[in-house]
């Protein structure tokens, strides 16, 4: 492998990692505050992707403006769906055992995924990339799609935004406090249920954003939710449940790993995320960035 190819593959892998991070960080954040593993996160991501497709057909989305509208409209729409789900369903099971929580979110997967089938049918869809992002840029004499570069820019922006929100704002302080000391938070006069609802909405917003970005990256079909949630799981477990920084690290490891291992290992490269996930769980169950459970 030449060093040019190495750099090219690294950049390409980081793009994949960034997209994964956007989706997985939502899952991790929700777990951190709500202590619920939301299987339906993948379904919300899928709904975001399909909504983006439908809206793009109305907007004739080849223009940059059309694509920006998708980016601005779809994620909040998913956040609103999240709001409804949190208030009507999730809230009722926070005190229940893990199994019932998992089953509740799994039931949502069944309902949401099948609703997508009923509404959009089984055809694969995609969103046309805006003209500005449809071409490619030269990296070390090789062509890299401009759209990947775009994701590579968006990803760190989101990461920075989340860092800023969590560490530099009052809301962030409350959210972090909710992660570390869920029991004492109420005593401090914070409206805990509001914190939970807004965190859940933020998680869904990220899922929606990931959906929009995916719809223009590749084809979308009925299976993407189930597939993505497992990838996100791997990311979140490797990085540490509830840790956004860990999700970033986990995403980048998996994104670059999948790109690099493809060449020497072929199809076996796809085993890597799960092998790493199991390994981390065995050696360090709380993940690379997480803290042991009290």
């Amino acid at each position: 492998m030449t060093w040019q190819l190495f750099v090219f593959m690294l950049i390409n892998g980081l793009c994949q990692g960034m997209l994964l991070f956007i989706i997985a960080s939502g899952l991790s954040l929700v777990f951190g505050v709500l202590r619920v593993i939301n299987f339906a996160h993948g379904s919300l991501y899928m709904i975001g992707a399909f909504l983006a497709y439908s809206l793009s057909t109305l907007l004739s989305g080849e223009s940059l403006l059309g694509f920006l509208i998708l980016l601005l409209v779809i994620p909040p729409a998913i956040a609103i769906i999240g709001f409804v789900l949190e208030v009507t369903l999730f809230r009722r099971v926070y005190r229940e055992e893990h199994l019932l929580q998992l089953l509740l979110t799994y039931a949502l997967v069944l309902i949401l995924d099948d609703s997508v089938r009923v509404i959009w049918g089984g055809d694969p869809r995609s969103v046309t990339r805006p003209d500005l992002l449809a071409g490619s840029v030269d990296v070390m004499g090789m062509a890299l799609p401009s759209y990947n570069v775009f994701i590579l820019v968006i990803g760190p922006l989101i990461a920075f935004g989340m860092w800023f929100l969590l560490y530099r704002t009052r809301t962030g302080n409350v959210i972090r406090a909710a992660v570390s000391f869920p029991d004492t938070l109420g005593a401090l006069g914070v409206n805990v249920s509001w914190v939970m609802t807004s965190t859940f909405m933020l998680g869904c917003w990220l899922a929606g954003l990931g959906g929009v970005l995916t719809a223009a990256l590749s084809n979308i079909d009925l299976g993407i939710g189930m597939e993505k949630i497992i990838e996100c799981f791997a990311v979140v477990v490797i990085g540490g449940l509830g840790s956004v920084g860990g999700a970033l690290l986990g995403s980048l490891i998996i994104g670059t790993g999948l790109t690099f291992f493809q060449l020497p290992f072929g199809r076996w490269a796809l085993v890597f995320p799960y092998a790493l996930m199991a390994l981390v769980l065995v050696i360090r169950p709380w993940g690379l960035f997480g803290k042991p459970e009290r």
Partner: peptide, 13 residues
């Protein structure tokens, strides 16, 4: 599978 981002660079390598 519909995302070829990790496969195409390998194909061209």
């Amino acid at each position: 599978e519909s995302n070829f981002s990790t496969f195409i660079p390998t194909l061209l390598a």
